[in-house]
Design a protein around this nucleic acid. Sequence first.
DNA 1: TCAAAAGTGTTTTGGATACACCCATGG
DNA 2: CCATGGGTGTATCCAAAACACTTTTGA
Lengths: 250, 250
Amino acid sequence: MNEFNEYFKSAFTVDNVIFGFDEGDLKVLLIKRGEDPYRGKWGLPGYFVYPNEDLDTAAIRVLEELTGLRNVFLEQVKTFGSVNRHPFGRVITVAYFSLIKISHYTLQPSSIARKAKWHSVSEVTGLAFDHDEILKACFHRLKWLVRSRPVGFELLPPKFTLTELQHLYEAILETSLDKRNFRKKILSMDLLIDLDETQEGVAHRPARLYQFDRNRYEELLSEGFSFELKESKKKERTTERAASSSPQTA
Amino acid sequence: MNEFNEYFKSAFTVDNVIFGFDEGDLKVLLIKRGEDPYRGKWGLPGYFVYPNEDLDTAAIRVLEELTGLRNVFLEQVKTFGSVNRHPFGRVITVAYFSLIKISHYTLQPSSIARKAKWHSVSEVTGLAFDHDEILKACFHRLKWLVRSRPVGFELLPPKFTLTELQHLYEAILETSLDKRNFRKKILSMDLLIDLDETQEGVAHRPARLYQFDRNRYEELLSEGFSFELKESKKKERTTERAASSSPQTA
DNA sequence: TCAAAAGTGTTTTGGATACACCCATGG
DNA sequence: CCATGGGTGTATCCAAAACACTTTTGA
């Protein structure tokens, strides 16, 4: 160790970008910081990695302390280690993101959890540290991942409608999709179980409910199947409401 | 700082998977370790990150000390931090990979460089630390990257033939490609400059030389162009020699 | 009976694949 | 003149894209 002692003076943390999906909108769980540095600012949930803890374990711990959830989709994205990113010293952080079913999330009793709140990803800005950049990197990774692997289901309740699924994809990919083509594509993959149930209590024709068939996916995978949604060069999603006849002050 | 002192006892390093392409084969530059731990084993080039050094800078430094090269393609891939991965203490390492033109590589005078040697990626095994795993992760990332962005050119000399380019893709993707279809696809992207020169001194019809048009790529990018080579579900590259008429014992 | 979202098929188009022969050079 | 890789075109197939109306429910 001798000559290398100089180097054993750093700390490292994990930060976890926790995504959820609600009201047709992609959300991220943020913490209002109650202590320095950046007191009062919103930031990503994270903490120092314990001396005897693996990185993934630390990320799982942070997630569980906040949400009570275990066995959740979680993936390492990128490590941020600019010299001056942390005022306490040299701290590098390993960024993870996780996907949770927001309906399963319940406020935890821990003091940290009481400071947590969901924010629309598209509206988040001005976070503590370099967390804006971290969020951006994780969102970018999610965008890619959702087109290459069937992870979208991690964000939906166990039973969902095709329209909900489509809205999820539209929110993540920031695009609009054609209803018929989307359904054709998804159903042709043979990854959904038609539950033969329908929504109840909606003021319109109730939609069929589906479930993701994880076993079938594993099976297809081993046969060389590759989940793949094309990168659509389509128009940005717009707030589809042109100047109707709402009177404007001229 | 006070209460957090416990955490400021870790070190971190960068490891750099340096890829090159030669003799139709994807290579990686490894170091024969002259010191403990893992003395005598091959390992990835890497070193501690200096207290006032950014991660990327450290990776660039490691690369330059070894190869003398600057302004090289380099990308962070993943961070490895198992509790016991390093016998000296808690050391997490940030893995990078870089792509260099092997023809530009010349043996550096530094003592470290004298222990470096190119190895075929497909044959490497039994590296120091968790470097097998790191190499695997970087190779996997390269495989993905080469299909999504025109980075293959980083591994070729400035002037190359289409067949060389095809062989490069075949080596990285571990597959075989159809010559006519490959050419059609690549040329249709309008990213290559036909130099109107040909090979010299080859014992067959000399091939035309091409150059990657980086400016054109930037231009196309800004127009929304997306480089994309499909994931071919084709046969593994085989040593194309089936039982011809060689007699089998019946 | 109205509003609101669910559900459904066909045609067109473009890109991926499969495939085989002649060409230019050095030895 | 032979061996070696260079270079080229077409037909087929399949998946993506474009596109509009009817159905079911609650209010």
